[in-house]
Design a protein around this nucleic acid. Sequence first.
DNA 1: CAACATGTTGCGTAATAAGCAACACTTTGT
DNA 2: ACAAAGTGTTGCTTATTACGCAACATGTTG
Lengths: 251, 251
Amino acid sequence: MKSIEKAVSALQLLVNSGGELRVGETSRHLKVTRSSASRLLASLASGGLIEQDPATQRYRAGILAVQLAASFHRNFDLVEQAQKEMDELARTTEHTVWLGVLSGTEVVVLKTARGSQPIQFTVEPGHRLPAHAAAMGKALLAVKPDAEIRSLFAASLDPVTKQTLVSIDDLLREIAMSRLRGYAISNQELFDGVKAISVAFEDPHKGMNIAISVSYPLFALEGGSDQSVVDALLLFAHHFGSRIGDKRWTK
Amino acid sequence: MKSIEKAVSALQLLVNSGGELRVGETSRHLKVTRSSASRLLASLASGGLIEQDPATQRYRAGILAVQLAASFHRNFDLVEQAQKEMDELARTTEHTVWLGVLSGTEVVVLKTARGSQPIQFTVEPGHRLPAHAAAMGKALLAVKPDAEIRSLFAASLDPVTKQTLVSIDDLLREIAMSRLRGYAISNQELFDGVKAISVAFEDPHKGMNIAISVSYPLFALEGGSDQSVVDALLLFAHHFGSRIGDKRWTK
DNA sequence: CAACATGTTGCGTAATAAGCAACACTTTGT
DNA sequence: ACAAAGTGTTGCTTATTACGCAACATGTTG
């Protein structure tokens, strides 16, 4: 069903273009004529998935998208269940806690819980982070076999900071280390001066993976050690993992 | 682009089926063979708009839907702006405040603010209400000309409670009254024992309409009069409307 | 274990989406 | 100020593709 796949591509483009899309822009990226792009967007708008601004003629997300997302969150009760415990984790560590899922080579942030630290790094739910640079990304990738990871990152790894791993082999080595360790680390690979650690969970019913991460600025470390944060995260993983029935954490 | 419109219909069906969709169900509702429905859903899933549960084979909303909704809320800053004032309104009235938009013959709730009353009627964001029975619906319909309203409700009006208006002519009369009044009323037409009043706003930039409503149980009325709630809502409408540049409320 | 549903493939034909112009309209440049 | 380029939309024709029909694989139920 090529036309539908093209339509979905247009929606991805909409997200990547900051929420607004024009017909000409769409036609160029999808390599179709403006007439086709016009009809494509009009069709998507027919059911309210997107809608056209009457003033600027630009297209943006519609109400149906909100409803779909609502049904996503309603089904995906792992997220709801995690919320309360995330708050708890944010309180004990005093740092920022994120919950995310893997989408291709990126991590989509679904929930956040702010710690009590005055200086924080926050990300709005719905935003995306490069998986190879984020702790959550590595934790989620660690579930997959190396071959799959390698095919995912066919293109080269984009450097985000000076610390970002740009070689796939380095990434795989680091992920192997994460598997042994039980949690993944991002040491200033996503933001300078910010470290993050993360663990992944699998919902046995829905067959879906999520990750929880704690991010903290380097200067906030007491005595240069982040052992207390690691301990808190592992404690959280044990509690939450056993409650949702994740085999990796039940014992 | 019929196949895309069919795909959007499938998404609407997904929302109306409680967030889960099966191939057979889809084929029956869209009146296509199972093979077509299978390919259609697979195409939608290709880009992450929906995804298939590996265990049950059922389809549900995907991550792209969450991203789309996030971009919707980012663009639609009216909602964000309204949030704080809604909290204020909920505090002064002590009742529940809803914010919604019109989608066909239904109202989609986007935000809620709870009042301090111990007994409350709450609706989750993303849910929908029949426009002809909800105060928000009438307020939003009142913006449109009668002819358009009449064509919207080609089918008969579904009765929700014993008070629900079932005749289109009655509805139009009631809406005309709302225009004179400046606000719309739903007197136990949506929930027995619950009354609601609502006002609509228009974003001059985005050309989009939203409504704010206050719902309150009849037994909570002091002295049988709801004048204080009406006054609070009109005060809110004046403040908010003039701030966003709505012509109807600037003077 | 049979009878039934369900979801996913090939395959040929009929439906339809894409490109090409032409149009109205706004924005930009001189 | 007008020309020139850009934008989004709409007939029209052909080439593309999506549909229904089977057949198959895999659970589900009686």
